[in-house]
Simulated assay, not measured.
Amino acid sequence: MVFLLVFTGFICLAGLVITLIYINVTDHSYSSEKSFTNLSWMYLVLVPIAILIVIVLAFLL
């Protein structure tokens, strides 16, 4: 159980660091449609993968 908490904390910390790094990057070719499309694909791909990882870890531990 402690492993899962440490793993989750590491993922959250990595997400925070990556977010803070990309906040400072200026994109001159920003498009809200492109951003929405990329975000949609990210959620469609990453959320099921994250759920599968949680389920697999729950059965292994």
Rank of each mutant, 00 (worst) to 15 (best):
residue 1 M to Y: 09
residue 2 V to K: 15
residue 4 L to W: 11
residue 5 L to D: 05
residue 5 L to M: 10
residue 5 L to K: 06
residue 6 V to P: 01
residue 6 V to W: 01
residue 6 V to T: 08
residue 8 T to N: 07
residue 10 F to M: 07
residue 10 F to I: 12
residue 10 F to K: 02
residue 10 F to L: 14
residue 12 C to T: 05
residue 12 C to D: 00
residue 12 C to I: 15
residue 13 L to M: 07
residue 16 L to A: 10
residue 18 I to K: 08
residue 21 I to C: 05
residue 21 I to D: 04
residue 24 N to S: 11
residue 24 N to D: 13
residue 25 V to T: 05
residue 26 T to N: 09
residue 26 T to W: 10
residue 26 T to K: 13
residue 26 T to D: 10
residue 26 T to H: 10
residue 28 H to Y: 11
residue 28 H to Q: 11
residue 29 S to A: 08
residue 29 S to G: 09
residue 30 Y to Q: 03
residue 31 S to A: 07
residue 32 S to C: 01
residue 32 S to D: 08
residue 33 E to W: 03
residue 33 E to D: 12
residue 34 K to N: 10
residue 34 K to C: 00
residue 36 F to H: 08
residue 36 F to C: 01
residue 38 N to H: 05
residue 39 L to D: 02
residue 39 L to F: 09
residue 40 S to W: 08
residue 40 S to G: 03
residue 41 W to L: 10
residue 41 W to R: 12
residue 41 W to Q: 06
residue 42 M to Q: 11
residue 42 M to D: 02
residue 43 Y to R: 06
residue 43 Y to M: 10
residue 43 Y to L: 15
residue 43 Y to D: 00
residue 44 L to K: 13
residue 44 L to V: 08
residue 45 V to P: 00
residue 46 L to W: 08
residue 46 L to V: 09
residue 49 I to F: 07
residue 50 A to W: 07
residue 50 A to C: 08
residue 51 I to N: 02
residue 53 I to V: 15
residue 53 I to T: 07
residue 54 V to M: 06
residue 55 I to A: 13
residue 56 V to A: 08
residue 57 L to H: 07
residue 57 L to I: 05
residue 57 L to D: 06
residue 58 A to W: 13
residue 58 A to G: 02
residue 59 F to M: 09
residue 59 F to S: 01
residue 60 L to Y: 07
